[in-house]
Amino acid sequence: MPGSNWLERLRRSKGLPTSDLDLDAFISSLPNPNPNPDPVQPPAPPAKPGCGNPQVFDLMSSVLSELFVMNAPAATVAEKPKSSRKQRNPKLCSRLDSASASGARAVARAPATSPSSAENSLAGVKKGRPAKPRRKRGPASSDFGAYSRTEVTVIDTSSSPGWKSEKIIFSKGLVWKVRDKKLWNFNRKKRKLGIVDKLGGEKEKEKDRQSLGEVKAKAQKETLASLEEECVHKDNCTHTDNRDTTRGTQDQVPIPKKRPKFSRSPRIPAAKDSSIFRIKVLTSKKNGTTSTKNTLKGK
């Protein structure tokens, strides 16, 4: 019998006598018979080479498992990867546990250390994703919480889009951050346009949307590239002697270098040389979720 081997092993593992046992009688005599072990067990024999007639067994087991899916699908599907993964890479699992306990740094490392199988890497990304924004937002939001926010209207006769603009100043002690208020205005404009467009034709509506999107994307690029300046303000302006070094300090805004690792996500192409990557890096500095959305829209 092809199934004798696994049956014997099962019996042995359960401490039952391997022979002289009527299986049907034994099962019927049990107070709480569980039908699941049978469909779960069949995948085990192929793992062991040297079984008699394994192809027939595979066929049978697959048919059986398909049939049993109707009864208990969640149990079979969910248990399969969990059990195999734990058995195959027990050390990895323990490391992940410790990593998640130790904090975000280790969580960020998890996708990189995970096995190369797509399932595992995706699992890593999925696990990493909620952790990453937490890590990103944590210091950023706490920083902005500490900053005092001031809205100003600035007249600049050399400013390229228009001589009048609204800016937001975040200041904390000697540190100043200047942001353009345009990003917020765009949303308001869009809403207003939307109401007006209801009266207009559909084509005009689309045109407006496109142009607005283009302008929005352009303005975002310009704004994000030109702004985001962190300047140290002192009464006597005691900067370093070399201007280049000062520039360096001004550009020392935390850039998420680990970002590319997450480009394995199926949604985001892993194009490293494209402007998308650059914009994403910049947007992540400001306001992760919303800006990224806008960038993708603009694209």
Partner: peptide, 30 residues
Amino acid sequence: DIVTGWPGRMNNSLVLHNSGFYELCERGTR
């Protein structure tokens, strides 16, 4: 060329650094 609207606590070099004139000069268009 004028720039105004920045608060008094900003020093001269910072106001200049945030001006359109600075940007144009650094870009080489002024």
